[in-house]
């Protein structure tokens, strides 16, 4: 008997949006395998999020009330979930491919003698077996993986599966269960907000010109700035490496650990298009990618691809602009 389980993700009493995507993914598995589906949510004071999941999706929800587990703790999650997943007879466990999901899933899989497949972006069925597609090489290629064991943990890439709200199945009352947990190997000291928030310029801009590692050196940011200045409502952003290098502030980082932006136009200059970056900008209206590598991952997700060296191409664009201004 197969059984699909979703581990809901929540932070400070709020369900993280990726949970709805996990349920959408789990429903796809359910359709393929015709197996029951339930949602687990561990933690302290979780009745509100548990009820919300139940009301919004109609899924079976098991709230594992764990006194003392105010915030995420890897030791607690591995212990509580290993016991519960065994009891439920889970065969496919859907977890967010988030910093939290990636923190406990690999260890949990070992505990359950199960398989762990991270960053799942697609599921298909072939010869009666589920095949999971994930990206490799910074998104340039893909892997298809099948599980050979009875329990498979799947961490699902955020932003790939669309949350479906119209699919309320029969309603089940939330089930509650109390478990106790104690470990002192990892102790939470609290969650801290980073010094810099996301720069509001990124949300207000019509066009974002973003710099990636392909700019090569800090001086070339000047090119990016000049390019952006051709447009009245523009902002400059960067991929994570550019912010790690300190060339741009973290408030200007686009991606899963930065800002999610949806400008009318996004121009990625020297950005390869790793999933973690893509998640932050794939909702943009029109995506332009400028890259020397004709096979770069981002070309799969762009409207317009320009195979050029940005250090000569951007000056050429600025030159064309000036020429046209003169002709006017």
């Amino acid at each position: 008997m197969e059984h699909i389980v979703v581990i809901a993700e929540h932070l400070s009493g709020r369900i993280r949006p990726v949970t709805w995507e996990l349920i959408a993914f789990a429903r796809e598995l359910k359709r393929l395998r015709n197996a029951p589906l339930s949602v687990l949510i561990p933690g302290e004071d979780i009745s509100a999020p548990a009820e919300e999941i139940s009301a919004r999706t109609g899924c079976r929800v098991l709230a594992i009330n764990t006194p003392g587990l105010q915030s995420y703790n890897s030791e607690a999650y591995k212990e509580i979930l290993a016991a519960q997943l065994r009891e439920t007879g889970a065969t496919h466990v859907c977890i967010a491919n988030s910093t939290q999901g990636l923190d406990f899933s690999p260890g949990l899989a070992i505990r359950l003698k199960g398989a762990c497949i991270t960053g799942v972006e697609k599921v298909t069925e072939k010869d009666g077996r589920l095949c999971f597609l994930r990206k490799i090489y910074n998104g340039k290629m893909t892997h298809t993986i099948v599980s050979d064991v009875g329990v498979t943990l799947l961490t699902v890439e955020p932003g790939v599966f669309k949350a479906s709200e119209d699919e309320i199945a029969d309603c089940h009352p939330v089930e509650y269960k109390n478990v106790s947990w104690h470990s002192d190997r990892v102790r939470n000291l609290g969650v801290e907000k980073s010094e810099a928030g996301i720069d509001s310029a990124l949300n207000e801009a019509d066009i974002i010109v973003a710099a990636g590692r392909g700019i090569g050196k800090e001086e070339n940011l000047e090119l990016i700035r000049k390019f952006a200045s051709l447009f009245p409502r523009a902002a400059v952003a960067g991929s994570r490496p550019i912010c790690d290098l300190g060339w741009l502030e973290y408030g200007r980082q686009v991606g899963i650990t930065g800002a999610t932006v949806t400008p009318k136009v996004y121009i990625a200059c020297g950005i390869s298009g790793a999933t973690q970056h893509l998640t932050g900008m794939r909702g943009s209206g029109f995506i332009v990618a400028i890259n020397t590598d004709p096979n770069t991952a981002l070309f799969n997700d762009a409207d317009l691809c320009i195979v050029e060296d940005l250090t000569t191409f951007i000056p050429a664009v600025i030159g064309e602009y000036k020429k046209e201004k003169q002709d006017e």
């Binding site: 290629m141 893909t142 892997h143 004709p294 799969n300 691809c305």
Partner: peptide
């Protein structure tokens, strides 16, 4: 391993991905 790699491929396009042709100036 508990899981197996069965295939390696390339990602599907999610957008049109038009490739600009011509000289650098023409593309600009």
């Amino acid at each position: 391993s508990p899981e197996r790699l069965t295939e390696v491929g390339f990602p599907q396009k999610t957008r049109s991905g038009e490739i600009l042709q011509g000289s650098q100036g023409e593309k600009a």
